[in-house]
Amino acid sequence: MSVFEAALDRIFGNPSMAAAVWISAATSEERPIRVIRRAPDRITEFGAGRFVSDTMMVDVRVSDVPDPRTGDLIVIGTDSFTIQGEPTRDRERLIWSLDLRPS
């Protein structure tokens, strides 16, 4: 295990990280996971206008969800979200960043 993997285990193991459930759209497999929630504003330019929209993103360990796909569900508490767009990994290939929309 690398030092990065050990650090991520400590970060994601912290009780303040959100507990969630990943549900595969293809197989209906369910798996409990830990996520880091992010909700950055996204600025989109259209012609001369700029639009600010809310987003919901989560970071998930690759070891928890090896192959997330568009359409999979992430349930955090009573809130359900669908993965939209292509999941992306960090440089070390240890963390997925998932763009979500409410289900």
Rank of each mutant, 00 (worst) to 15 (best):
Q84C: 05
P15A: 11
T44P: 00
T55I: 01
T88D: 11
E92L: 06
T27S: 15
R34M: 10
D72L: 01
S63D: 14
E45N: 10
F81A: 06
R38V: 01
I11T: 13
M57V: 06
M57K: 14
M17T: 15
S24R: 09
S16P: 00
V65W: 05
R38A: 10
F51H: 10
V21L: 11
P87F: 02
P15W: 02
L98G: 02
W22V: 04
T78S: 14
D67Q: 11
T55L: 03
M56H: 14
G13V: 05
R10Y: 00
G77C: 04
A26Q: 15
D90E: 06
I95H: 03
G13P: 08
R34P: 04
W22E: 10
V65P: 13
S24K: 10
E92H: 09
V65H: 10
D72V: 03
M1Q: 12
M56D: 13
A7K: 14
A6L: 12
F81S: 08
S28C: 07
R42F: 01
D79Y: 03
L73P: 11
L98D: 03
G47M: 01
G85D: 04
F46E: 14
S2H: 11
A25Q: 14
F4P: 08
V58H: 07
R101E: 13
R38Q: 11
R69L: 02
D54Y: 00
I23M: 12
W22D: 08
R10F: 00
M56C: 09
V75P: 09
A26P: 06
T70M: 08
V58L: 06
A20S: 11
D99A: 07
G13E: 07
L73T: 15
L73Y: 03
A26H: 11
R10G: 08
I95D: 05
M57R: 15
W22G: 06
L8H: 10
E86T: 13
I33T: 12
S63P: 06
I11S: 11
D99V: 04
S2L: 10
V52E: 14
T78V: 09
V75W: 00
E29L: 08
E45M: 07
R31D: 03
L94M: 09
G71N: 09
R101V: 10
I43P: 05
M57S: 08
I23P: 10
P66F: 01
I36K: 15
G49P: 01
A19T: 10
N14L: 06
A18F: 04
F81M: 07
I74V: 14
Q84I: 13
V60T: 09
D54I: 03
L94W: 00
A20T: 07
G13Y: 03
T44V: 10
G47E: 01
S80I: 08
I95K: 07
I83L: 05
R91C: 02
I23H: 09
S53W: 00
E5R: 13
P68D: 02
E92K: 12
L94Y: 09
I36T: 10
G71Y: 02
V21M: 13
T44A: 08
R37F: 00
D59P: 05
I74D: 12
G49T: 13
I95M: 04
P32H: 06
R91T: 12
F4A: 13
D64P: 07
